[in-house]
Computed example of a mutant assay.
Amino acid sequence: MPLTFTLDPAVTPALRDGVLDLWTDVSLAGGAVGFVPPVTREEIRPELVRHLVAMAEGRTRLLVGHDADGRVAATAFLTFNTHRLMTHWLWLYTVMVHPRHQGQGYGRDLLAAAADAARTCEGIEAIRLTCRGGTGLERFYASCGYKEVGRVPGAIRVAPGDDRDDVFMLLPLT
């Protein structure tokens, strides 16, 4: 059964907790979403609060996918540029699909829904995102239409002696 996507949902305690649970579960499963295991909900919470503040300030929009049971199963945060020369594209952050739903095409569905959401934003012509090298994510994003446009070798240190590339990807919307 497909996910049901909502852009700019009301931020209720249930939604907040659902996103926090998703972020924790994805991180614990080894997902490249800003943390490495072991990590706790309480360690992730301040980063979620930063995203929620950006939403309240109108700088970020949340796209959330719910599964058939109504649980938060996927998210992506669309963040507008504040630099006056870069307002024609936005960032896609914290792209997550719950581990129990991976391999079912929901990641592709999430990226398609994010592109559709970006197209509703006035003046937005492209989406940029970054991903952690060495995880296969750049191949996945490329299969969804994104093009690698840059790479910073060793920019992400996930552990001592384990540095990964920071890979920049772009999806033109026009």
Results as ranks from 00 to 15, higher is better:
98 H>D: 15
150 G>S: 07
86 M>L: 14
38 P>L: 08
78 L>G: 04
118 A>R: 06
157 R>C: 13
138 E>H: 01
76 A>E: 09
35 F>V: 03
151 R>A: 06
66 H>L: 14
39 V>N: 05
140 F>M: 02
75 T>F: 03
34 G>L: 07
29 A>V: 08
51 H>M: 13
84 R>A: 14
122 E>Q: 11
33 V>R: 04
114 A>S: 12
139 R>E: 06
132 R>I: 01
126 A>V: 04
135 T>C: 02
157 R>S: 11
27 S>M: 01
101 H>I: 06
32 A>P: 02
106 Y>P: 04
150 G>F: 06
125 E>L: 12
157 R>K: 14
34 G>H: 02
141 Y>I: 02
158 V>M: 11
81 N>D: 10
81 N>H: 10
63 L>P: 10
46 P>A: 09
35 F>W: 05
39 V>W: 04
59 R>F: 12
43 E>Y: 03
78 L>H: 07
58 G>M: 11
29 A>H: 06
127 I>H: 02
140 F>L: 02
76 A>C: 15
41 R>L: 09
140 F>S: 00
125 E>N: 07
30 G>V: 03
113 A>T: 04
79 T>F: 06
117 A>I: 09
73 A>T: 06
122 E>P: 11
88 H>Y: 12
84 R>M: 14
47 E>R: 13
42 E>A: 13
28 L>N: 08
69 D>S: 15
100 R>V: 15
103 G>H: 07
32 A>I: 03
138 E>A: 03
99 P>D: 07
47 E>P: 00
83 H>Y: 14
129 L>W: 04
36 V>C: 04
34 G>I: 08
105 G>Y: 05
149 V>S: 02
137 L>Q: 08
87 T>K: 15
93 Y>H: 15
57 E>K: 13
124 I>N: 03
79 T>N: 09
94 T>C: 13
146 Y>I: 01
61 R>G: 10
134 G>F: 00
73 A>C: 06
85 L>H: 15
103 G>Q: 09
80 F>M: 15
129 L>S: 02
141 Y>H: 01
142 A>C: 00
85 L>F: 13
38 P>H: 03
67 D>A: 10
79 T>R: 15
99 P>A: 10
79 T>S: 15
102 Q>G: 04
89 W>N: 10
157 R>F: 01
47 E>G: 13
113 A>R: 11
94 T>H: 12
156 I>M: 06
103 G>I: 10
79 T>H: 09
116 D>G: 12
92 L>N: 13
76 A>K: 04
160 P>D: 11
43 E>N: 09
115 A>P: 02
103 G>V: 11
76 A>F: 02
84 R>C: 12
77 F>L: 13
150 G>H: 06
45 R>P: 00
114 A>Y: 04
86 M>Y: 13
130 T>F: 00
137 L>E: 07
34 G>S: 05
49 V>N: 11
133 G>H: 04
87 T>W: 01
82 T>R: 12
80 F>C: 12
152 V>Y: 05
54 A>Y: 12
93 Y>A: 15
47 E>L: 12
66 H>Y: 14
59 R>S: 13
146 Y>D: 01
37 P>Y: 00
50 R>Y: 07
141 Y>D: 03
116 D>R: 13
74 A>P: 06
87 T>I: 12
106 Y>R: 12
49 V>I: 15
143 S>P: 01
96 M>Y: 05
110 L>F: 06
82 T>C: 05
